[in-house]
Write a protein that binds this DNA or RNA. Sequence first.
DNA 1: CCCAACCACTTGACAGTGTCAAGTGGTCCG
DNA 2: CGGACCACTTGACACTGTCAAGTGGTTGGG
Lengths: 196, 196
Amino acid sequence: MTSDGANEDQAGGRARLLAAARGELLEHGSAGLSLRGIARRAGVSHAAPKYHFGDRAGLLTAVAAAGFGELASALRSATAAEGELSLGVLGRTYVAFGLANRALFELMFRPDQLHPDDPDLRAAQADAIGLLSTAVAAESGTGVTEEAPELALASWAFAHGLVALVRDGALQNVAGEDDPALLVERLLQVFGRVLR
Amino acid sequence: MTSDGANEDQAGGRARLLAAARGELLEHGSAGLSLRGIARRAGVSHAAPKYHFGDRAGLLTAVAAAGFGELASALRSATAAEGELSLGVLGRTYVAFGLANRALFELMFRPDQLHPDDPDLRAAQADAIGLLSTAVAAESGTGVTEEAPELALASWAFAHGLVALVRDGALQNVAGEDDPALLVERLLQVFGRVLR
DNA sequence: CCCAACCACTTGACAGTGTCAAGTGGTCCG
DNA sequence: CGGACCACTTGACACTGTCAAGTGGTTGGG
């Protein structure tokens, strides 16, 4: 049909709604996100989301699961590009993803807005985070060995906290006011250096 | 006019609203938080919050500022009890506070729900976080010297991420741990060991 | 050929929310 | 007494998520 539409892809209503949700997330952040706004942007009625996703949490869960999928593939292609899977590359990629998709990333970790036990969500999350663990296992094969899983989780917590603090402006409030990207890079380096 | 600055009996509406907000935060989390619910709990009309705080963000800002105040005094009394101010004690206290006051802690770092430039909020935040920086400065006086501020911020990011991941159930989903407190303790130890 | 079933929605209603304008009762002050 | 000020309240508005019922189009079987 006349697929001119300057808007989202012409696809099933479900996909259109998901795309619209991503758009709203980008423009209004994860706080000012309404089903009706999403429906408006997708060009459907205000109750269409309910039909496709059951409720608000259902839609957001689908968005979050897609987000974990993207995170996983970002991590994968980063390690592939580097040839070798290193903790440093992974951490950098994780932080970059979180800061490039702030509202999405925030949503992905807000179980009170999602259906946290949704199997698709759980699978996507496990896939993405699993990459981190295996990377650390491989890296520390040379050295520490014993507490590899703990190191993986600790690195995850560091990267995750870095995203959160920068996203929420806390780091900038406290540290010098220079470019947050630079600050992030310095902190990643310090953490990496302290690890080995 | 008879009374001084601080009251206990027969609190004014403003203080009652703040207390009610804390209660709702505890019971319904930071997501299901409504001005009208708070007003109901405080026994005032639905528009009373608007009178005292201007808008929703105004009330939440006051709550968050109080939260930073409590965090600061928790950190202070922890270091006082220990006699010596160590990064480890500080980190443990920070994480404990975040997990004991989950909804409050979450709110404290959500600038999109607050008035992030409110001077009281900024001051309370700077006070609490400043403690962390000075502690690291003191600690690394013996050793690293050069990159002390970076280490402080990195430690903060680690502790902060740890709170976030545990609070949002992500760590539990990935590590098959039953007791999250134990997991947290192990990670704190790993991080501390890796630092020196 | 027709009619039923199903799908992908839409329409209309409801209770609940934050915000605003205007009103109300009390206390203080000159 | 009269006004100013304070600490609210009342009532309204637009907006939100959710639900029940309806609608139009396609398909499949008798």
